[in-house]
Lab assay of single mutants.
Amino acid sequence: AQVHVDGVTYDFDNPEEAEKFAREMAKRKGGTVEVKNDQWHVE
């Protein structure tokens, strides 16, 4: 699973880890999390 944050792509073998990371980053940035094509996007 991939997580996109500020133009940087992070690869995770485990989708749950990807989701956890995406939500944590969004919380830190005060942003939102979107899922597109099985990829997490932190805005």
Rank of each mutant, 00 (worst) to 15 (best):
V35E: 06
V33A: 11
K29D: 09
P15K: 12
V5T: 02
E43N: 14
G30L: 07
V5S: 05
V35M: 14
N14T: 14
P15V: 13
A1D: 04
G31Y: 12
M25G: 00
F12N: 00
D11W: 15
T32M: 09
A1I: 14
D11C: 15
E17K: 02
K36H: 13
A26G: 05
F12A: 01
Q2P: 02
Q39P: 05
V3I: 03
E19L: 07
F21S: 02
M25I: 12
V33K: 04
A1F: 15
M25H: 06
E19M: 04
E19W: 04
H4D: 04
D13P: 10
T32H: 11
A18Y: 03
G30D: 08
A22T: 03
E16W: 12
T32K: 11
H41F: 15
K29P: 05
K20S: 09
P15S: 12
E24A: 06
H41K: 06
E43G: 12
K27D: 12
A22S: 01
G31C: 15
G7H: 04
E19A: 04
H4K: 08
A22L: 11
E24L: 03
D11R: 11
V42A: 05
D11E: 13
R23N: 14
E19F: 02
F12I: 01
E19P: 00
D6Y: 07
E16Y: 10
A22P: 00
V8W: 11
E34V: 15
K20Q: 11
P15R: 12
E34D: 10
E34L: 14
T9N: 04
E24H: 02
H41M: 10
D13T: 08
T32P: 05
V33H: 04
E19Y: 05
K29E: 10
V3F: 02
H41S: 08
R23I: 12
K20N: 11
E43R: 15
R23E: 14
A18W: 01
V5Q: 01
A1G: 08
E17W: 04
Q39A: 12
R28Q: 14
P15F: 12
V33M: 07
F21D: 03
V35A: 06
H41Q: 08
D6E: 07
R28G: 09
A18I: 00
V3Q: 00
F21I: 02
N37H: 10
A26H: 04
K36D: 09
A26K: 03
A18L: 02
G30R: 07
E16M: 10
H4Y: 12
H4N: 09
D38S: 11
A1T: 14
H4G: 02
Y10I: 06
H41T: 12
Q2R: 14
K20V: 04
R28W: 06
Q39M: 13
G30P: 04
D6L: 05
E17Y: 02
V33E: 04
E17A: 09
K36N: 10
D38F: 07
W40Y: 12
Y10Q: 01
G31K: 07
D6H: 06
H4S: 08
K27V: 09
D6S: 07
K36I: 14
V8I: 12
K29H: 15
F21E: 00
V42P: 05
V3S: 00
N14P: 00
W40I: 10
R23T: 10
D13S: 11
A18Q: 01
K36V: 13
K27T: 11
W40A: 06
G7A: 01
E24S: 03
N14I: 03
A18M: 01
V33L: 09
E16H: 09
W40D: 06
A18D: 02
Y10A: 01
V8K: 11
V8N: 07
A1W: 15
A1Y: 15
W40Q: 07
E24D: 10
Y10H: 04
F12V: 00
D13L: 09
T9V: 15
T32F: 11
T32W: 15
A1K: 13
F12M: 04
E43K: 14
D38N: 15
Q39S: 11
T9I: 14
Q2H: 11
E43H: 14
K27S: 12
Q39F: 07
K20P: 00
G30E: 06
V35Q: 11
G7L: 02
K20R: 12
W40F: 13
K36G: 07
P15D: 11
M25A: 08
W40K: 05
K36L: 11
K27I: 08
A26V: 05
E34R: 15
D11F: 15
G30V: 05
D6R: 03
V3P: 00
Q2G: 02
A26D: 03
V5L: 10
K27Y: 04
V33G: 04
E17L: 06
V8E: 08
N14S: 14
G30Y: 07
G7N: 06
D6A: 06
F21P: 00
T32I: 12
E16T: 09
K36Y: 13
H41I: 14
E17Q: 08
N14L: 05
Q2N: 04
G31V: 12
F12R: 00
K29I: 15
D38W: 03
W40N: 05
G31D: 06
A18P: 00
A22E: 09
K29Y: 15
R28H: 11
D13N: 09
Y10R: 03
V5G: 01
G7T: 01
Q39H: 11
D6K: 03
V42I: 09
R23K: 13
G30T: 05
E43Q: 14
T32Q: 09
D13V: 08
V33F: 05
K20G: 03
V35I: 13
N37S: 07
M25Q: 11
E17G: 01
G31T: 11
D6N: 12
T9H: 06
A1S: 12
V42Q: 05
N14G: 07
E24K: 04
D6P: 01
D6W: 05
H4M: 12
K20I: 09
V42Y: 06
K36S: 09
V5P: 01
E19G: 00
V33T: 06
R23Q: 13
W40R: 06
T32D: 06
D13W: 04
A22M: 08
M25D: 03
R23L: 11
Y10M: 03
Y10W: 06
V5F: 12
N37G: 13
V42F: 05
E43W: 13
E43A: 13
V8H: 10
E34N: 13
G7M: 01
A1E: 03
K20D: 11
N37D: 12
Q2D: 00
E16F: 10
V42S: 05
E34K: 14
Q2K: 13
R23G: 09
M25T: 07
N37C: 15
D11Y: 15
G31W: 09
D38E: 10
G30H: 11
N37A: 08
R28M: 13
E16Q: 09
D38K: 10
A18T: 00
A22F: 05
H41Y: 15
Q2A: 08
H4F: 13
A18R: 01
T32Y: 13
A1M: 14
T32R: 13
A26S: 04
V35R: 14
A22C: 13
E34T: 15
V3T: 02
E17S: 05
N14A: 05
D6G: 10
W40L: 09
V33Y: 04
M25R: 01
D6I: 02
G30S: 08
T9L: 08
V3R: 00
F21K: 01
Y10G: 01
F12E: 01
D13Y: 03
P15W: 14
V5Y: 12
K29T: 15
V8T: 10
Y10L: 04
N14M: 03
V5C: 15
E43L: 15
T9D: 04
V42L: 04
Q39K: 10
V3K: 00
E17D: 13
T9P: 05
K36Q: 11
F21G: 01
E43F: 14
K29S: 14
V8M: 11
T32V: 12
V8P: 00
V42E: 06
R23C: 15
E16R: 09
D13M: 08
E17M: 06
V42D: 04
R23W: 12
R28F: 07
K36C: 15
G30A: 08
K29M: 15
H41E: 08
N14F: 04
P15Q: 11
N14D: 14
K27Q: 12
A18G: 00
A22R: 05
F12Y: 01
V5K: 02
F12G: 01
Q39R: 09
W40V: 06
V5H: 07
V3L: 03
R28I: 14
E43I: 15
R28N: 11
E43M: 15
E16S: 10
D11S: 13
K27P: 02
F12Q: 00
E19R: 01
V3H: 00
K36E: 10
E34W: 14
G7W: 02
E43P: 07
K20E: 12
D13R: 01
E24I: 03
Q39Y: 07
K36T: 11
D11G: 05
T9R: 11
